[in-house]
Computed example of a mutant assay.
Amino acid sequence: MSVSKPVVYASILAAVALVAYAVGSYAATWTAELKFAESDAKIAALRGELMGQIAGMRSRSEERATGAAGSLEEVKRQIQAEMGLFPVKLLRERRESFVELNTYDNRGRLNYGTAGYLGNGYFITVKHGVMALGDDLERSDARRIVSIEILDKGKKIKAQVVDAGNANVEVHPGDWAIIKVKKPIDLPPLRVDTAFSYDFAEPVVRLGNDYSKGIILSTGYIGQRTSNGLVTCLTDGHPGVSGGGVLDQQGSLVGIPVGRMEGDFRFSFILPLRDDMFRKVPGLSVSSAVPVPTGD
């Protein structure tokens, strides 16, 4: 049976058209997928760029906040330094490093003072608080200290003198002593600075056992150096504060109160700390100080 040419041509054209349609559909699908992929890549790139910008904005914001906080702290420090102010938290922490000191002499008399903790069981105080002074100590009836105690959280702890200056009177550059307790003690040690300059009008704070009523603080300003190396200051010099602490604005121990002018509790004398005072205190690091007269 023969097929006419028109029919053959029509079949061929139909087949070609079908193939062309299939190829066109595939090409269109492939092109669309390619465009979608390109769009996804662009979206991912935009997302990454946007996240980077957000992260950068957050970082700059945090930097500004940190910088603002740092600037605020610096301003606070400058104001404190200029006005002679002391952080209350710092003073409360340093108060824990001082203890009441009680001594008893051979005449049955109780004497009270203050001592500052240096660590490892060692304290610094005044010599006249723990040793009798004078030129007649060889006499049989001379006054002598027979017992030394510190009061820690209400408990009495025995102590002994391990080193002392050469003072034979009060308000003397050798009026210092190092004592040590015989039992373990849990107190925060003081940071010692022997390089404090004691410039005129430099603000300081004094902590001491005023009238044996516990550790109390008083603020004041540095006055003048005396000819024997002591320093004058207008801080309360009530009985009991001798041997306490004189702190600078950083909370470092820079001196000890050793006495007052007769008849004037406000006019007191400070003994600046010196390296030789700590020669028998093991493990204590002190800075180098400018030499001053020692009276030795």
Rank of each mutant, 00 (worst) to 15 (best):
Y117Q: 02
S140K: 14
N102R: 11
V130L: 03
Y117M: 09
N111K: 06
N120F: 06
Y104N: 03
D136M: 11
I124F: 07
V130W: 02
G113N: 13
L133S: 13
T103C: 06
G121N: 05
L101Y: 07
K127E: 02
N120W: 09
Y122F: 12
S140F: 14
D141I: 07
A142V: 11
D135H: 15
D136P: 06
Y122I: 09
G116L: 11
Y104H: 08
I145G: 01
N102E: 13
G121T: 06
D135P: 06
L137R: 14
Y112V: 14
F123M: 01
D135F: 15
M131F: 12
F123R: 00
G121S: 08
L133D: 10
G119H: 07
I145N: 10
H128Q: 09
N120R: 14
I124G: 01
A132F: 07
A132G: 12
R109Y: 07
L110I: 11
S140T: 15
A142M: 08
M131A: 13
L137T: 04
H128V: 04
G108E: 12
G119Q: 12
T103L: 03
N102T: 04
G129S: 13
G119E: 05
L133Y: 11
R143M: 05
I145W: 00
V126P: 00
R107K: 13
K127G: 07
M131P: 05
R109T: 11
F123W: 00
G129A: 14
V146I: 15
N111C: 02
T103A: 01
T103G: 04
A142R: 01
R144G: 02
D141V: 09
G134H: 12
A142H: 06
T114E: 05
M131C: 15
D141G: 11
V126N: 11
D105V: 02
N102W: 09
E138P: 06
A132N: 09
G129D: 03
D136N: 15
R139W: 11
G113I: 05
V146T: 13
G108C: 05
G134K: 10
Y117W: 03
V146H: 03
Y104F: 09
L101D: 06
D135K: 13
G129K: 09
I145Q: 05
L110K: 15
V126K: 10
Y112N: 10
R107D: 04
M131G: 10
K127I: 00
A142T: 10
Y122C: 09
V146N: 05
K127C: 04
I124C: 05
Y122T: 00
Y117D: 01
V146R: 02
L110M: 10
R109G: 04
G134R: 10
N120I: 04
F123P: 00
D135I: 11
G116F: 12
Y117V: 06
R107T: 01
L110S: 13
D105E: 09
Y122M: 01
V130Q: 07
L110N: 09
G119W: 06
G121R: 08
R144K: 14
N120S: 13
K127D: 00
G134L: 14
V126R: 01
G121A: 02
Y117C: 11
A115Q: 00
T103H: 03
Y117K: 00
A132D: 03
D136T: 13
L133I: 11
H128I: 04
L110G: 08
G116T: 15
F123S: 01
L101R: 08
R143A: 09
R139S: 15
G129P: 03
S140N: 12
R139I: 05
R143S: 08
L118D: 12
N120Q: 13
R143Q: 13
N111A: 10
L110T: 14
D105I: 00
